[in-house]
């Protein structure tokens, strides 16, 4: 059922994004779409490019060390249709929370499900697990 829901989401997003955002690889070839990780970090860099945009965050771990997490999204045209092409939304140095599907290899990469903005705004951009954006209770959380 979950798979069907995911496919439905992909189809829905396809409608939203149109042909301009055709991408090159299967999300599942890189990311484990059955898992969620929540990161909270400081935005370092945005790569606004096709076929996917990338967002890079500095995440401070519980022990005070830091890691850079990079998370992929749909392409810029898809983000535009979600109202996210407004460059004022992503401010370098601001803190964001991201729900992502982690990389299969364990690398600190992910495919973005949702952003929480510094002002509390919540936007789903990837594979939502529920219509209200609830995250599985056992999803690991990284960063303060």
């Amino acid at each position: 059922m979950k798979k069907i829901a995911l496919m439905g989401s992909a189809l829905a997003l396809g409608l939203l994004t149109g042909s301009a955002t055709q991408a090159h690889h299967a999300v599942q070839a890189q990311f484990d779409v059955s898992k969620n990780v929540i990161i909270t970090g400081k935005l370092l860099k945005v790569e606004w490019q096709n076929p996917h945009a990338w967002f890079h965050f500095e995440v401070t771990n519980a022990d005070g060390t830091t890691d850079v997490w990079s998370t992929e999204t749909v392409g810029p045209n898809g983000l535009r249709r979600l109202g996210l092409s407004d460059r004022r939304l992503f401010q370098i140095g601001e803190t964001y929370k991201v729900d992502l599907c982690p990389d299969r290899s364990g690398a600190k990469l992910g495919f973005t499900n949702a952003f929480w903005f510094p002002d509390g705004k919540f936007v789903k951009v990837g594979f939502p697990e529920s219509p209200n954006g609830e995250i599985p209770a056992d999803a690991p959380k990284v960063g303060n």
Partner: peptide, 19 residues
């Protein structure tokens, strides 16, 4: 489905459901 218009300004603290 191509073309964009009347996008909601995404600057306020509301929940947006792209789906």
């Amino acid at each position: 489905g191509a073309g964009v218009a009347d996008l909601k300004a995404a600057t306020c603290g509301e929940k947006v459901d792209g789906f």
